[in-house]
């Protein structure tokens, strides 16, 4: 009886919560379908006529999203991959290797994520211009990988503390080098955390606007979110449906990533049980 009641309660809470969460996403989807010319100024609740592909193509052309999404993909994949590897290495060193002043190193790296991003704009821009990094891909990689490191490090460090130490000590006894231990033991053990860190940093880089609009102007450098913001500027003549369609289009890669990540997390859950 109580089991039954608990189940009902649980399902009610779940349904309510997911409804609450789904409604804004639903509005986003439905209004991205409204043909631009039929938009009346009030949000639609139900899908009417189908203008999604027209809106897609208008957003795609106006903001030149094709190359921009290619750029973003490159930055997000390479930037977060490099960041996660560097962060995992640093976490491995700080937690497992014999290092002095662990606390100091931890805070040195972690503090990067505590600074407000807007602080970096002016000084970074000036040094970028000085060292010819402004409006280059390498400059974008540099800033994206670096802003991703501190949080990925935090994540990986906390996971490293949960790795059973017996494994490491056994390997040490066998005379394995740190390099080997890192790749053969530590990385495989922290894999799910690494995937999580990668996913978060991928999304963070993909959705960045601040650095995208400040450090790039050329079409072959500018990331997708910066290109998308052209649709939203105060002079822009496209209506909300086109902005939404563009935003939806740009969000597809992150949605796909999370869809597959969710599957990964769930599968892993089963594996350990």
């Amino acid at each position: 009886m109580t089991m039954h009641f608990g189940r009902v309660l649980r399902n009610t809470v779940l349904i309510l919560l997911s409804l609450l969460w789904a409604v804004p996403s639903w509005l986003l989807l439905v209004n991205a379908f409204v043909p631009a010319k039929e938009y009346t100024g009030t949000p639609h609740w139900l899908p009417g006529s189908f203008g999604l592909f027209d809106n897609f193509s208008q957003a795609w052309n106006e903001a030149d999203l094709g190359p921009a999404m290619g750029n973003s993909l490159l930055y997000a994949v390479v930037g977060s991959l490099v960041a996660v590897l560097i962060a995992t290495g640093a976490a491995f060193a700080v937690v497992i290797m014999p290092v002095r002043r662990r606390v100091l190193w931890f805070w040195l790296i972690y503090s990067g994520t505590l600074l407000p991003l807007q602080v970096f704009l002016r000084p970074l821009f000036l040094s970028y211009a000085r060292f010819d990094l402004y409006d280059t891909q390498i400059g974008m990689f540099l800033v994206y990988a670096t802003i991703s490191i501190p949080f990925a490090f935090f994540l990986m460090r906390n996971y490293a503390t949960t790795v059973p130490r017996e494994v490491v000590e056994a390997a040490r006894m066998d005379g394995a080098s740190w390099w080997r231990m890192f790749w053969q033991i530590h990385v495989p053990l922290s894999k799910s955390a690494m995937v999580a860190a990668f996913s978060f940093q991928f999304v963070a880089i993909w959705n960045d606007l601040l650095f995208g609009i400040t450090f790039s102007t050329s079409d072959n450098i500018r990331p997708a979110i910066a290109a998308l913001s052209e649709l939203q500027g105060s002079y822009s003549a496209v209506g909300p449906p086109v902005v939404l369609a563009g935003a939806l289009l740009v969000s597809l890669p992150t949605l796909v990533l999370f869809f597959s990540a969710q599957r990964f997390f769930v599968n892993n859950l089963k594996l350990t049980r």
Binding site: L17, W21, A22, S25, L231, Q232, P240, V243, L244, A247
Partner: peptide, 19 residues
């Protein structure tokens, strides 16, 4: 249900603002 909750995280700021 879980997906419903995760989707907004993956959305870009422009979409969130408009919606």
């Amino acid at each position: 249900a879980r997906l419903c909750v995760i989707i907004p995280y993956a959305l870009s700021g422009a979409a969130v603002a408009v919606v």
